[in-house]
């Protein structure tokens, strides 16, 4: 039986690990290459990326996009619709006011100046043409690019004959298949306040994605400022500490987790229940809830 190997690298802003039971390293190399392809294509830091071309053209003409980008934009539009406008790929412009590294709380006036630039409803999307109507508007795929990459890499591994493996892109996980003996992978769900796992979820296939106020957030004057920003107010959401969702696609799991965080403690769980996917929530008092069988 081929050995279980782990291929680690850093991409999409975090640690990546491909666990596979396979001979040779062709599969994991192809998997890493796929992550790098997506990172390069959709990076907002690279002038030649499609995202930069769209953002540079804001306020001028429409940009024609390729099929993969168009399908991602259709997906973003779907998530916008299904979340009641909370999942919004134009909200990244708020980074101009929020600097989570410097842990600075912006003035309301700074945020007010940015709000007119936010809103997928302002965008003209008529496949394959996308137009951002005002200069200064921008889109980014940070809200779902990593999850999409996890799904793509899982498909690449499967196409290379991997039957037992797992893709972990900084916590966004897609399981290609169970361990060789058929036993599930034990996925640790990050504790939002401490190191280690708050729960363990067994998974034989499909994906799990998590969102939490612990990532890149900060505490100032006793208040926690999460990096998850409400596109309507421009302020961080509060209510839930963390959400994990299981789905066939990591993309959908990630979108669902993000939407639940944005909806907060009251409406988030009901929204997840209506969606019908298994989930795990950690509320502000670090109580666990949800429908995932966990250990």
């Amino acid at each position: 039986m081929p050995p279980l190997r782990v291929h680690r690298f850093t991409a999409l802003g975090g640690p990546c690990a491909l666990h596979v039971q396979a001979d040779g390293d062709e599969a994991v190399r192809a998997g890493e290459a796929e992550v790098l392809r997506i990172e390069t294509k959709y990076s907002r830091y690279r002038d030649d990326s499609i995202v930069s071309r769209i953002n540079t053209a804001a306020g001028t003409e429409a940009v024609e996009v390729d099929d993969e980008t168009a399908a991602l934009l259709d997906y973003a539009a779907t998530a916008y619709e299904q979340s009641g406008g909370l999942f919004d790929i134009t909200s990244g412009v708020l980074r101009r006011a929020w600097d989570f590294k410097a842990q600075r709380v912006p003035a309301q006036a700074e945020i007010d100046a940015l709000l007119p630039l936010i809103g997928w409803h302002r965008v003209t999307w008529s496949r394959p043409y996308l137009r951002l109507p005002q200069a200064g508007m921008q889109i980014d795929f940070g809200g779902f690019g990593k999850e999409y990459a996890a799904d793509r890499v899982a498909a690449v591994l499967a196409a290379h004959g991997v039957r037992h493996g797992l893709v972990d892109l900084s916590g966004d996980i897609h399981v290609v298949g169970p361990h060789a003996d058929g036993s599930p992978w034990q996925i640790g769900v990050q504790h939002p306040r401490a190191g280690g796992a708050i729960a363990t979820v067994p998974l034989v296939r499909g994906a799990i994605a998590s969102s939490g106020d612990y990532e890149r957030g900060f505490v100032r004057d006793g208040r926690r400022y999460s990096h998850i920003l409400d596109p309507r107010s421009g302020w961080p959401v509060d209510g839930l500490a963390a959400v994990s969702v299981l789905a066939d696609q990591c993309l959908i799991a990630g979108t669902a987790a993000t939407c639940a965080m944005l909806l907060g403690a009251e409406r988030g769980p009901a929204w997840l229940a209506a969606l019908g996917l298994p989930y795990l929530i950690v509320d502000a008092q670090l109580r666990l809830g949800g429908s995932i069988a966990r250990s």
Partner: peptide, 14 residues
């Protein structure tokens, strides 16, 4: 069906 054909976008095909 009481309908005329309305354009249906990809995000409305659920």
């Amino acid at each position: 069906a009481c309908v005329t054909i309305e354009p249906v976008q990809p995000w409305q095909r659920g």
